[in-house]
Design a protein around this nucleic acid. Sequence first.
DNA 1: TGCCAGTAAAG
DNA 2: CTGCCTACTGGCA
Length: 793
Amino acid sequence: METTGWLFDLYPRQDRMVLWFLTAAGECRRLEDGFPYCVYLGGAPVRLRALAGEARRRGWVRRFWPARGRDLWTGRELPVMALELASYAHLPRLRAWLGKLSGEAPVYNCDLDIAAYYLYTRGLWPCAWYDLEERAGRLQAISPREEQFALELSVPPLTTLHLGLTRDPLIPLGAGNGLSLGWEGRELELTAPDAAGLVAELGRWLRRADPDLVLSDWGDEEIIPPLTRWSRDYGVPLPLDREPHPVPREFRGARSYFSYGRIVYQGSAAPFYGRWHVDQRNSFFFREAGLPGLVQVARLGQMPLQQAARASPGTLITSMQLARAAADGILIPWRKGEPERFKTAAELLVIDKGGLTFMPPAGVHFSVAELDFASMYPAIMARHNISPETVDCGCCAGEGARGPRPTYNPPPHPLPQPLKGGYVAGRVGAAGPDFPGSHKGLGGGRGGRGGSVAPWPSPHNLAPEAGYRLCRKREGLVPRTLRPILALREGLKARAREVPAAEAVQYKERQNALKWMLVTCFGYLGYKNARFGRIEAHEAVTAYGRDKLLLAKEICEGEGFQVLHGLTDCLWVKKDEEVANAELEELCRRISAASGVKLALEGIYRWIVFLASRQDPKRPVATRYFGVFEDGSLKVRGLACRRRDTPPFVRRAQEALLKRLADSGATTPAELAALRPELEELAETFRGRLKEGDLKPEDLVITRVLSQTVADYKVDTPAALAARQLKNAGIHLQPGEKVRYVHREPKRSPKELRVQASPFLEALEDYDAKLYLELLERAMEEVLVPFGKQEVG
DNA sequence: TGCCAGTAAAG
DNA sequence: CTGCCTACTGGCA
């Protein structure tokens, strides 16, 4: 039977993949597809045969055969042995055994997520329409009806059920907290005499609505785990899944990890089978980019949507690289998870030069233009072919002064070709004895050109400063992955500009999701343990970045502009006389052409303020500024209102002042100066409200992230005190989790009284008004001082 | 007052 | 899928 379906959900079960499709008619269809997991072993053929034979004798491997695959580092084709697993369940044991062979035989494709490996191998991606052929619940053939990188997403209507808690998520469900449910515009609290009754009640709703998507707040950790436990304990069925067979349901995977120099907490996951459960509070991409962004990254990352919901941008971009590698017939090296050792000071000195900064003169400036390089680092990687395997590669050695002698000349990488056809069960290359992806031919690049990025090869293949040589013969895996993302992001941004505001939202969300993947891709180059990381590549990118910002500065100055400030990929410039828009556009065009990366006019500020350091008011700081563009819109960076540890009341007060500045239309020094009395008056009303003491506790809450467990704190900071209060109430926060509190008594008072932790704020009678006045004063000063506010006595 | 632990921001 | 630099605050001796 032939149908058309939207690939919705997928997961492995026993030795097959289960796929769920939504049809145009609104039905959902479950299909199975046999997919044997193949691991590849390199090394001497005789030894390989012996190892493969041993794995088969142990029952882990059903069959094995000689195959060929491409080495990531050299681009060379290698003879390998393909081992087809007897069952997915054997993977951990086979992996452990192969791990002990360390060095003897390189192991490839052995640590991939099964669902993702299936998608890479079949050349499929979730959240897209396919023509299907099925027989008796088995998938026979499948081919896509749309491009993976298409500008338009066609999402079928999804039946959505909302789940949430009626009170603070730190209060356990059933112990003071209730379950709220939303469906078809209705919003209600589920009531039941006991836990079993609550499970039954939710069960009725799930059967009635049969939702495709359960969108929850705190579902992963606070709702689904207790409900599942009660369902088991009291024998009340809870139809979370559409999958008719029993599914594994354990709530593991909560962890605190170190990222970007800070601790992050990721809660455990509670995925459903055959429908989606997305916990909005436990999903980076949902938070940043909404459902459209999530659908976008699931499709590009070739990862089931519920996994993408919990994934970091790093996981997504890595998945895209793995998909690219698989499609190009590249053997995927095993990433063994050894934590990165701490870098020595000397290493840091070499690596961490980072972005270039020109210091701004603190104070107000008028008619300043901001020029930004678009996606600078990813564009550099694409433009200059920077990838772990292209930095000082073996194949181009000898052309420059550095590097080893040439040993091997691989064929040039084939040009990208569009994806055609699809998967047909039983056809060569689908799942049989052949290398994954090789049926599509090498380099089946599906993306277009890189949008704002000049095409590779670039004439400049010697990185500035360190002088690494970049491969001229093969385009690297990272640039090949990035190019179509850059192109799509440009397309989405352009689309968002040309459609009405309401429609533009989804394009903006999708491009924002891509932005995060692009940013992370650069970071991963510098991470030793990233699968496709290499520190020299990271260095080369930042060196090119500094080079281009400097080049841009020189061109600006050559054209008679004064460069006020520069920060990694942005420049703030002005001229004494009036500058026409066209002149700036022309300047950008010149710099774009000279640097190979698109520089765009972000806007012209009527005025902009660069703030001075609080510690040394004579000194400017690079990352704190605010200003108003010609169209009256504000741009604010680094001020109190941008910090998450600023209480809402202080944030709103600062925002009100900024808004008044923007709405006033003031353009000249005199007009700005005339606003001062009005702003002072506004500030005074906020001070008055604080002194009156009738603010709600919620307006004064400070949110901070815990960097360690309560016991590890050496200093009794307010956050540590609040976390200790919660601990005494039986609520245990992990490093990386947020703690929320209100300052109650002054600093020198007994420690138990200094702060009051949320959610125990109802009982709060008073707050430390002096401290909040101080916070408010600082926020007011940030805005007022540049306009000549006198210090208050 | 100075030191340092702790935390957050822009890119 | 564990990657900074810098500015700043607040506790504490």
